[in-house]
Protein backbone atom coordinates (compact mmCIF):
# COMPACT_ATOMS: atom_id res chain seq x y z
CA UNK A 1 0.00 0.00 0.00
CA UNK A 2 1.57 3.33 -0.94
CA UNK A 3 1.89 6.21 1.43
CA UNK A 4 -0.89 8.74 1.04
CA UNK A 5 0.10 12.37 1.20
CA UNK A 6 -1.69 14.88 3.33
CA UNK A 7 -4.36 16.82 1.53
CA UNK A 8 -4.46 14.17 -1.18
CA UNK A 9 -7.86 15.25 -2.40
CA UNK A 10 -6.56 18.64 -3.45
CA UNK A 11 -3.53 17.42 -5.31
CA UNK A 12 -3.32 17.99 -9.02
CA UNK A 13 -4.00 14.39 -9.91
CA UNK A 14 -7.14 14.18 -7.81
CA UNK A 15 -8.41 17.48 -9.15
CA UNK A 16 -7.84 16.27 -12.69
CA UNK A 17 -9.58 12.98 -12.01
CA UNK A 18 -12.52 14.78 -10.48
CA UNK A 19 -12.81 16.95 -13.57
CA UNK A 20 -12.52 13.95 -15.86
CA UNK A 21 -15.22 12.02 -14.06
CA UNK A 22 -17.57 14.92 -14.34
CA UNK A 23 -17.92 15.78 -10.67
CA UNK A 24 -16.52 19.22 -11.06
CA UNK A 25 -17.52 21.74 -13.68
CA UNK A 26 -14.65 24.10 -14.40
CA UNK A 27 -16.92 26.51 -16.16
CA UNK A 28 -19.27 26.80 -13.26
CA UNK A 29 -19.42 30.46 -12.33
CA UNK A 30 -17.51 31.72 -15.31
CA UNK A 31 -20.07 30.87 -17.94
CA UNK A 32 -21.39 33.62 -20.08
CA UNK A 33 -24.92 33.50 -18.84
CA UNK A 34 -24.48 34.90 -15.36
CA UNK A 35 -27.20 34.39 -12.84
CA UNK A 36 -27.51 36.92 -10.03
CA UNK A 37 -25.83 35.77 -6.85
CA UNK A 38 -28.45 37.08 -4.49
CA UNK A 39 -31.52 34.91 -4.41
CA UNK A 40 -34.75 35.48 -2.55
CA UNK A 41 -34.68 34.67 1.15
CA UNK A 42 -35.46 31.09 2.12
CA UNK A 43 -39.10 30.35 1.40
CA UNK A 44 -41.64 28.70 3.69
CA UNK A 45 -41.40 25.35 1.92
CA UNK A 46 -38.17 24.34 3.59
CA UNK A 47 -37.72 24.73 7.31
CA UNK A 48 -34.00 25.16 7.83
CA UNK A 49 -31.95 27.82 6.15
CA UNK A 50 -31.33 27.06 2.53
CA UNK A 51 -28.00 25.80 1.21
CA UNK A 52 -25.39 28.48 1.60
CA UNK A 53 -22.36 27.60 -0.50
CA UNK A 54 -22.34 26.87 -4.18
CA UNK A 55 -20.94 23.40 -3.59
CA UNK A 56 -23.86 22.58 -1.32
CA UNK A 57 -26.28 23.97 -3.84
CA UNK A 58 -24.71 21.86 -6.54
CA UNK A 59 -24.87 18.78 -4.42
CA UNK A 60 -28.50 19.46 -3.59
CA UNK A 61 -29.28 19.96 -7.25
CA UNK A 62 -27.53 16.73 -8.20
CA UNK A 63 -29.41 14.90 -5.47
CA UNK A 64 -32.71 16.30 -6.64
CA UNK A 65 -32.01 15.42 -10.22
CA UNK A 66 -30.97 11.93 -9.27
CA UNK A 67 -34.19 11.51 -7.34
CA UNK A 68 -36.24 12.66 -10.30
CA UNK A 69 -34.46 10.35 -12.71
CA UNK A 70 -34.88 7.48 -10.31
CA UNK A 71 -38.61 8.16 -10.23
CA UNK A 72 -38.81 8.06 -13.97
CA UNK A 73 -36.27 5.47 -14.99
CA UNK A 74 -35.88 3.17 -12.01
CA UNK A 75 -33.03 2.54 -9.59
CA UNK A 76 -29.48 3.05 -10.69
CA UNK A 77 -27.16 0.27 -11.66
CA UNK A 78 -24.61 1.13 -9.00
CA UNK A 79 -26.52 1.42 -5.75
CA UNK A 80 -23.36 2.44 -3.96
CA UNK A 81 -23.41 5.67 -5.90
CA UNK A 82 -26.59 6.71 -4.16
CA UNK A 83 -24.78 7.38 -0.94
CA UNK A 84 -22.10 9.45 -2.63
CA UNK A 85 -19.23 7.30 -1.50
CA UNK A 86 -16.55 6.33 -3.99
CA UNK A 87 -17.02 2.92 -5.53
CA UNK A 88 -14.25 0.45 -4.74
CA UNK A 89 -14.60 -2.19 -7.38
CA UNK A 90 -11.49 -3.94 -8.55
CA UNK A 91 -12.68 -4.41 -12.10
CA UNK A 92 -13.36 -0.74 -12.46
CA UNK A 93 -9.94 0.24 -11.17
CA UNK A 94 -8.10 -2.09 -13.48
CA UNK A 95 -10.21 -1.04 -16.41
CA UNK A 96 -9.57 2.62 -15.75
CA UNK A 97 -5.84 2.10 -15.63
CA UNK A 98 -5.75 0.06 -18.80
CA UNK A 99 -8.07 2.50 -20.53
CA UNK A 100 -5.85 5.50 -19.81
CA UNK A 101 -2.73 3.81 -21.07
CA UNK A 102 -4.40 2.44 -24.19
CA UNK A 103 -6.00 5.74 -25.07
CA UNK A 104 -2.70 7.57 -24.89
CA UNK A 105 -1.01 4.93 -27.04
CA UNK A 106 -3.82 5.00 -29.60
CA UNK A 107 -3.74 8.77 -29.90
CA UNK A 108 0.01 8.77 -30.35
CA UNK A 109 -0.19 6.10 -33.05
CA UNK A 110 -2.91 7.94 -34.97
CA UNK A 111 -1.04 11.25 -34.80
CA UNK A 112 2.14 9.62 -36.03
CA UNK A 113 0.38 7.92 -38.94
CA UNK A 114 -1.29 11.16 -40.05
CA UNK A 115 1.90 13.19 -39.90
CA UNK A 116 3.90 10.58 -41.76
CA UNK A 117 1.27 10.34 -44.50
CA UNK A 118 1.06 14.09 -44.91
CA UNK A 119 4.80 14.41 -45.34
CA UNK A 120 4.80 11.82 -48.13
CA UNK A 121 1.90 13.21 -50.14
CA UNK A 122 2.57 14.27 -53.75
CA UNK A 123 2.44 18.01 -54.51
CA UNK A 124 -0.97 19.52 -55.10
CA UNK A 125 -2.01 19.52 -58.75
CA UNK A 126 1.00 17.69 -60.04
CA UNK A 127 0.55 16.21 -63.50
CA UNK A 128 1.54 12.67 -62.56
CA UNK A 129 -0.46 12.40 -59.37
CA UNK A 130 -2.33 9.15 -58.92
CA UNK A 131 -5.58 11.14 -58.86
CA UNK A 132 -5.06 12.47 -62.38
CA UNK A 133 -5.65 9.30 -64.31
CA UNK A 134 -8.02 8.68 -67.14
CA UNK A 135 -11.20 9.08 -65.11
CA UNK A 136 -10.97 12.84 -64.45
CA UNK A 137 -9.69 13.26 -68.01
CA UNK A 138 -12.88 11.69 -69.31
CA UNK A 139 -14.97 13.87 -67.02
CA UNK A 140 -13.23 17.07 -68.05
CA UNK A 141 -13.02 16.38 -71.76
CA UNK A 142 -16.40 14.94 -72.48
CA UNK A 143 -18.33 16.19 -69.47
CA UNK A 144 -19.98 19.02 -71.30
CA UNK A 145 -20.86 16.91 -74.32
CA UNK A 146 -22.26 13.96 -72.43
CA UNK A 147 -24.08 15.63 -69.59
CA UNK A 148 -24.84 19.04 -71.05
CA UNK A 149 -23.96 20.81 -67.81
CA UNK A 150 -21.67 23.82 -68.03
CA UNK A 151 -20.63 23.31 -64.41
CA UNK A 152 -19.21 19.86 -64.81
CA UNK A 153 -18.80 19.31 -61.09
CA UNK A 154 -22.58 19.19 -60.89
CA UNK A 155 -22.57 17.06 -64.02
CA UNK A 156 -20.28 14.66 -62.28
CA UNK A 157 -22.15 14.36 -59.02
CA UNK A 158 -25.60 14.21 -60.55
CA UNK A 159 -24.94 12.34 -63.75
CA UNK A 160 -21.82 10.20 -63.72
CA UNK A 161 -21.95 9.56 -59.97
CA UNK A 162 -25.60 10.05 -59.27
CA UNK A 163 -25.82 6.89 -57.21
CA UNK A 164 -23.39 8.28 -54.64
CA UNK A 165 -25.45 11.45 -54.36
CA UNK A 166 -28.51 9.30 -53.81
CA UNK A 167 -26.68 7.66 -50.93
CA UNK A 168 -25.87 11.06 -49.47
CA UNK A 169 -29.47 12.19 -49.60
CA UNK A 170 -30.49 8.96 -47.90
CA UNK A 171 -27.87 9.59 -45.23
CA UNK A 172 -29.48 12.96 -44.50
CA UNK A 173 -32.87 11.32 -44.21
CA UNK A 174 -31.53 8.57 -41.93
CA UNK A 175 -29.78 11.13 -39.75
CA UNK A 176 -32.96 13.08 -39.17
CA UNK A 177 -34.82 9.82 -38.45
CA UNK A 178 -32.21 8.93 -35.83
CA UNK A 179 -32.47 12.35 -34.22
CA UNK A 180 -36.23 11.93 -34.23
CA UNK A 181 -35.95 8.61 -32.45
CA UNK A 182 -33.54 9.93 -29.86
CA UNK A 183 -34.90 13.34 -29.07
CA UNK A 184 -38.58 13.13 -29.60
CA UNK A 185 -40.84 13.68 -26.65
CA UNK A 186 -43.94 11.63 -27.20
CA UNK A 187 -47.37 13.11 -26.80
CA UNK A 188 -48.10 13.14 -23.14
CA UNK A 189 -51.01 11.34 -21.56
CA UNK A 190 -52.17 11.35 -17.97
CA UNK A 191 -48.89 9.86 -16.78
CA UNK A 192 -47.41 12.30 -14.33
CA UNK A 193 -43.74 11.40 -14.59
CA UNK A 194 -43.55 11.99 -18.31
CA UNK A 195 -45.48 15.18 -17.90
CA UNK A 196 -43.01 16.43 -15.33
CA UNK A 197 -40.11 15.51 -17.56
CA UNK A 198 -41.69 17.13 -20.57
CA UNK A 199 -42.30 20.28 -18.66
CA UNK A 200 -38.70 20.43 -17.56
CA UNK A 201 -37.47 19.89 -21.09
CA UNK A 202 -39.60 22.72 -22.32
CA UNK A 203 -37.26 25.63 -22.11
CA UNK A 204 -38.99 27.62 -24.75
CA UNK A 205 -41.43 28.91 -22.18
CA UNK A 206 -38.96 31.53 -21.08
CA UNK A 207 -37.95 32.92 -24.43
CA UNK A 208 -38.93 36.35 -25.59
CA UNK A 209 -41.46 36.01 -28.33
CA UNK A 210 -43.29 38.20 -30.79
CA UNK A 211 -40.60 40.76 -31.26
CA UNK A 212 -42.26 43.27 -33.56
CA UNK A 213 -39.08 44.51 -35.16
CA UNK A 214 -37.99 41.00 -35.99
CA UNK A 215 -41.40 40.21 -37.40
CA UNK A 216 -41.42 43.22 -39.69
CA UNK A 217 -37.91 42.50 -40.87
CA UNK A 218 -38.67 38.82 -41.41
CA UNK A 219 -41.75 39.80 -43.41
CA UNK A 220 -39.41 41.31 -46.00
CA UNK A 221 -36.36 39.12 -45.63
CA UNK A 222 -37.80 35.60 -45.61
CA UNK A 223 -39.17 35.84 -49.17
CA UNK A 224 -35.80 37.20 -50.29
CA UNK A 225 -33.94 34.33 -48.69
CA UNK A 226 -36.32 31.73 -50.10
CA UNK A 227 -36.09 33.19 -53.60
CA UNK A 228 -32.32 33.20 -53.39
CA UNK A 229 -32.32 29.61 -52.23
CA UNK A 230 -34.51 28.59 -55.15
CA UNK A 231 -32.17 30.46 -57.48
CA UNK A 232 -29.18 28.51 -56.18
CA UNK A 233 -31.00 25.19 -56.51
CA UNK A 234 -32.13 25.84 -60.05
CA UNK A 235 -28.74 27.10 -61.23
CA UNK A 236 -26.84 24.04 -60.12
CA UNK A 237 -25.70 23.10 -63.59
CA UNK A 238 -24.72 26.61 -64.67
CA UNK A 239 -22.82 28.05 -61.73
CA UNK A 240 -21.54 26.69 -58.45
CA UNK A 241 -24.46 25.80 -56.27
CA UNK A 242 -26.81 22.93 -56.66
CA UNK A 243 -29.08 21.06 -54.37
CA UNK A 244 -27.04 20.93 -51.20
CA UNK A 245 -26.13 24.58 -50.79
CA UNK A 246 -29.49 25.76 -52.06
CA UNK A 247 -31.25 23.45 -49.63
CA UNK A 248 -29.21 24.85 -46.76
CA UNK A 249 -30.26 28.40 -47.65
CA UNK A 250 -33.91 27.37 -47.98
CA UNK A 251 -33.72 25.67 -44.59
CA UNK A 252 -32.24 28.77 -43.01
CA UNK A 253 -35.05 30.86 -44.47
CA UNK A 254 -37.59 28.56 -42.84
CA UNK A 255 -35.73 28.73 -39.53
CA UNK A 256 -35.83 32.53 -39.68
CA UNK A 257 -39.55 32.43 -40.26
CA UNK A 258 -39.94 30.10 -37.32
CA UNK A 259 -37.88 32.31 -35.03
CA UNK A 260 -39.82 35.41 -35.95
CA UNK A 261 -43.36 34.08 -35.91
CA UNK A 262 -43.41 31.12 -33.57
CA UNK A 263 -44.24 27.47 -33.90
CA UNK A 264 -47.97 27.78 -34.33
CA UNK A 265 -47.78 29.88 -37.44
CA UNK A 266 -45.14 27.68 -38.97
CA UNK A 267 -47.14 24.56 -38.26
CA UNK A 268 -49.88 25.91 -40.45
CA UNK A 269 -47.86 24.88 -43.47
CA UNK A 270 -45.03 22.67 -42.26
CA UNK A 271 -46.00 19.80 -40.04
CA UNK A 272 -44.57 16.36 -39.61
CA UNK A 273 -46.90 15.01 -42.24
CA UNK A 274 -45.59 17.54 -44.75
CA UNK A 275 -42.04 16.66 -43.85
CA UNK A 276 -42.63 12.97 -44.30
CA UNK A 277 -44.41 13.33 -47.60
CA UNK A 278 -41.91 15.77 -49.09
CA UNK A 279 -38.84 13.75 -48.22
CA UNK A 280 -40.34 10.46 -49.31
CA UNK A 281 -41.58 11.82 -52.60
CA UNK A 282 -38.26 13.52 -53.33
CA UNK A 283 -36.20 10.43 -52.61
CA UNK A 284 -38.57 8.15 -54.51
CA UNK A 285 -38.52 10.40 -57.54
CA UNK A 286 -34.73 10.48 -57.44
CA UNK A 287 -34.65 6.69 -57.25
CA UNK A 288 -37.07 6.23 -60.14
CA UNK A 289 -35.37 8.77 -62.36
CA UNK A 290 -31.95 7.29 -61.86
CA UNK A 291 -33.29 3.75 -62.27
CA UNK A 292 -34.56 4.79 -65.67
CA UNK A 293 -31.10 6.11 -66.52
CA UNK A 294 -29.43 2.91 -65.32
CA UNK A 295 -31.86 0.78 -67.26
CA UNK A 296 -31.41 2.62 -70.53
CA UNK A 297 -27.68 2.94 -70.09
CA UNK A 298 -27.10 -0.71 -69.24
CA UNK A 299 -29.09 -1.92 -72.18
CA UNK A 300 -27.44 0.50 -74.60
CA UNK A 301 -30.69 2.25 -75.32
CA UNK A 302 -31.04 5.91 -76.05
CA UNK A 303 -32.52 7.69 -73.07
CA UNK A 304 -35.24 9.90 -74.43
CA UNK A 305 -34.34 12.89 -72.29
CA UNK A 306 -32.93 15.73 -74.37
CA UNK A 307 -29.72 17.38 -73.32
CA UNK A 308 -30.63 20.83 -74.59
CA UNK A 309 -28.22 23.65 -75.30
CA UNK A 310 -25.54 24.07 -72.64
CA UNK A 311 -25.98 27.33 -70.76
CA UNK A 312 -29.74 27.38 -70.76
CA UNK A 313 -31.78 26.67 -67.69
CA UNK A 314 -33.68 23.77 -69.19
CA UNK A 315 -30.71 21.73 -70.23
CA UNK A 316 -28.62 18.78 -69.16
CA UNK A 317 -31.37 16.23 -68.99
CA UNK A 318 -32.27 15.00 -65.54
CA UNK A 319 -29.90 17.21 -63.56
CA UNK A 320 -32.45 19.93 -62.93
CA UNK A 321 -35.15 17.69 -61.38
CA UNK A 322 -32.55 15.84 -59.34
CA UNK A 323 -31.22 19.14 -58.01
CA UNK A 324 -34.72 20.07 -56.94
CA UNK A 325 -35.15 16.74 -55.13
CA UNK A 326 -31.87 17.04 -53.31
CA UNK A 327 -32.67 20.64 -52.39
CA UNK A 328 -36.01 19.65 -50.90
CA UNK A 329 -34.48 16.86 -48.84
CA UNK A 330 -31.76 19.12 -47.46
CA UNK A 331 -34.24 21.87 -46.63
CA UNK A 332 -36.50 19.50 -44.73
CA UNK A 333 -33.55 17.98 -42.91
CA UNK A 334 -32.21 21.34 -41.71
CA UNK A 335 -35.62 22.44 -40.49
CA UNK A 336 -36.22 19.06 -38.85
CA UNK A 337 -32.93 19.20 -36.96
CA UNK A 338 -33.72 22.66 -35.69
CA UNK A 339 -37.20 21.86 -34.43
CA UNK A 340 -36.16 18.51 -32.99
CA UNK A 341 -33.40 20.08 -30.97
CA UNK A 342 -35.60 22.95 -29.85
CA UNK A 343 -38.92 21.31 -29.25
CA UNK A 344 -38.59 17.56 -29.33
CA UNK A 345 -41.08 17.20 -32.15
CA UNK A 346 -42.30 18.79 -35.33
Amino acid sequence: MSRLKENYENSRYRRFMRWMNGEVDLLDGVTDVRIPEETEPAPAGHGAAGPVSSADKRRAALEARRKESEEIFGPEIWPQAASGEPIFDRRLTVFRGVYSVMSVILCAVIIWVFLWTTVHLPPFGGADNPANNEVPRRYIESGLAETGAVNFVTGMILDYRAFDTFGESCVLFIASCCVLVLLRIDPVDEHSRARVRKQQENDRVFEPKNDVILQKAAFILVPLILIFGIYIVLNGHLSPGGGFSGGAVLGSGLILYLNAFGFQKTERFFTEKVYRRVTLCALTFYCLAKSYSFFTGANHLESGIPLGTPGAILSSGLILPLNICVGLVVMCTMYAFYTLFRKGGM
Binding site: V33, R34, P208, D211, I213, L214, A217, I220, L221
Partner: peptide, 17 residues
Protein backbone atom coordinates in the same frame (compact mmCIF):
# COMPACT_ATOMS: atom_id res chain seq x y z
CA UNK B 1 -32.30 45.63 -43.85
CA UNK B 2 -30.91 42.93 -41.59
CA UNK B 3 -28.12 44.37 -39.48
CA UNK B 4 -30.23 46.93 -37.57
CA UNK B 5 -32.47 44.04 -36.56
CA UNK B 6 -29.53 42.02 -35.31
CA UNK B 7 -28.29 45.05 -33.40
CA UNK B 8 -31.72 45.33 -31.81
CA UNK B 9 -31.67 41.67 -30.80
CA UNK B 10 -28.22 42.00 -29.24
CA UNK B 11 -29.27 45.10 -27.35
CA UNK B 12 -32.31 43.26 -26.06
CA UNK B 13 -30.15 40.37 -24.93
CA UNK B 14 -27.90 42.81 -23.13
CA UNK B 15 -30.77 44.61 -21.43
CA UNK B 16 -32.30 41.38 -20.23
CA UNK B 17 -29.25 39.57 -18.95
Amino acid sequence: LASPVSGHMIARLEAMT
